[in-house]
Design a protein around this nucleic acid. Structure first.
Lengths: 104, 104
DNA sequence: AGTAATAGTTATCTACAGTAACTAATTATG
DNA sequence: CATAATTAGTTACTGTAGATAACTATTACT
């Protein structure tokens, strides 16, 4: 939902790349979110692909959940300065990059 | 195995606290490791508890695996200085502490 | 002695993800 | 242009990791 909220819409393959999971995982997750009424398909030329976007309800729910997540993050980052947070993110990104290198 | 290697022996409850998981999870894991011949029970007074320790094979296997893990860690920490690593650990510990606070 | 609490087990359930094999649609090739 | 190769998504099956609830056996408390 985060990805679709920022990016407007996306195909299952785009999502699987973004999330770093396999296609069947995305299929299942999308199916659930569609059932719940948070996602809807966008018609495209290519009849193979299934491009999805947030519904109005989906966008509303996302915003609500976003607040909860932000509060949670504030909570667990209590006592950690902005610079420290950025440094932490930098280190994690480096480790992720090193991990990527390894798993070709 | 890390815990038992450093601590000599431990009961299932000790392990579940150390690992932060429930007792059934430990029961199953221990059972598997015992089957594989890496763990053995240590007799105790209290007939309820099941105190476990590494077997000779277990210790040997642990050392071998340890090498692999260390190599892996070196690999994913490439380009990150000792001080940066310590800072990262400090930040993660802080976050963990904040998480603990919340989930009472 | 009789009740509480503790250690471990069993059975059942859920979340989350992967692989293999497939269909349908589109691109590329000869 | 027809066929081969690729791409997007789905289905079926499997595995891992963990949780909760209900239970037994043992020990501690009053």
């Amino acid at each position: 939902m985060y990805y679709l909220n920022n990016d407007g819409s996306g195909t299952l393959v785009e999502l699987s790349h973004y999330l770093g999971v396999e296609k069947p995982t995305v299929t299942r997750t999308i199916a659930k979110l569609e059932e719940m009424g948070y996602l809807e398909p966008v018609p495209t030329k290519d009849k193979r692909e299934k491009r999805m976007q947030l519904t109005d309800t989906g966008r509303k729910v996302y915003q609500e959940v976003r607040v909860t997540i932000d509060e949670f993050e504030q909570d667990i980052l209590k006592g950690i300065s902005e610079e420290e947070q950025l440094e932490g993110i930098r280190l994690m990104s480096l480790i992720r990059k090193n991990l990527m290198q390894g798993e070709l």
